[in-house]
Design a protein around this nucleic acid. Sequence first.
DNA 1: GCTTTTGCCTAATGGTGTTAGGCTGATCGG
DNA 2: CCGATCAGCCTAACACCATTAGGCAAAAGC
Lengths: 192, 192
Amino acid sequence: MERVGLTTRRVAEAGAELADEVGFDRVTVSDLARRLGVATPSLYSHVAGSADLRTQIALLALEEMADRSAEALAGRSGREALAALGGSYRGYAREHPGRYAAARLPMDTATAVASAGPRHAAMTRALLRGYDLKEPDATHAVRLLGSLFHGWSSLELAGGFDHSAPDAATSWERVVDALDHLLRTWPGEGRS
Amino acid sequence: MERVGLTTRRVAEAGAELADEVGFDRVTVSDLARRLGVATPSLYSHVAGSADLRTQIALLALEEMADRSAEALAGRSGREALAALGGSYRGYAREHPGRYAAARLPMDTATAVASAGPRHAAMTRALLRGYDLKEPDATHAVRLLGSLFHGWSSLELAGGFDHSAPDAATSWERVVDALDHLLRTWPGEGRS
DNA sequence: GCTTTTGCCTAATGGTGTTAGGCTGATCGG
DNA sequence: CCGATCAGCCTAACACCATTAGGCAAAAGC
């Protein structure tokens, strides 16, 4: 038979496209094989199965997001960096909903540390160097920003902001203002 | 045959338990039927299918979470209310991971407005009455809190905070402090 | 008591995930 | 250049899940 020249990477990329089109949770080995013009079992030479396929898509998405964030952050600091990092997540989620969902897939620790995940944490930490936070407050802030960026993209993607004014973009700008303000006036141990 | 006396509600409850045990995305009509001691097609008298089953579980979870939040909020305001509301999400996610995941299921607009979803938004808005926010800042703050609570629970559930100090509970307290501080000093239009 | 409804059943179909094993085009040592 | 090995693809086969159609008998209403 005609060899199509598949590889794990190519399969993951096709899977990512499929995820964006039909939703990550509807990605199916059969459907993917169909799109690649190949019989279903043929994919098993490249991915270990359905679970592995999803993981591969997730790893791809994490890489892409990290690259995108790094580019957005270049040369910026303070509020600009905050807007850039958050915006890169928002944009990625909007443009690639399936991949974005994939990036949230829980994976085992070994895979997670070898993924682009740590790069994301590192970038958030780097961003915080523009503010005056000592440990452990910096860690708290990393977690706060991570949660907020993820939660926001997730809710916006689900259409949670669609049916009330003001629009999501306007709110987003003001939220970035609020975060910038918060990081510059981070409260100490005693209630201020 | 012995009638088991199923109803849509009971099926949803059993589905919720199953979700907590095996994960929401692994809930299957067959498995649920097996647990209920009934043939698979029998469930189709009570739920319209796999998708509907998931929606029913989601609706149940949203109700439970709203009830829990309402109870936690009773008689509290300010930082206490903030900790109570966020804590109720955190606690629910920890105790009922499958149900929590279900609650994030996207649903069509009609179903969403008839769900307990609006109650959640109303409670967050009520909480903000303890702070001095005018529209549209109150809406921005509702969205910020919603995103943060959801994002935090989601990341904590996925184990995102497990492999670094300090522990999640400590960070959480400080994040509540930060949010309380932010809401009390919410920045105006001009950069402060 | 008889009818109607309804809760459950079995049978059957089609789709998905996965394993086993075979064929053939590509690749590489001589 | 040629044979051996390997890799990429295939078909066959099985188990499991979702869903529809149609039947039977317990429960509920007149």
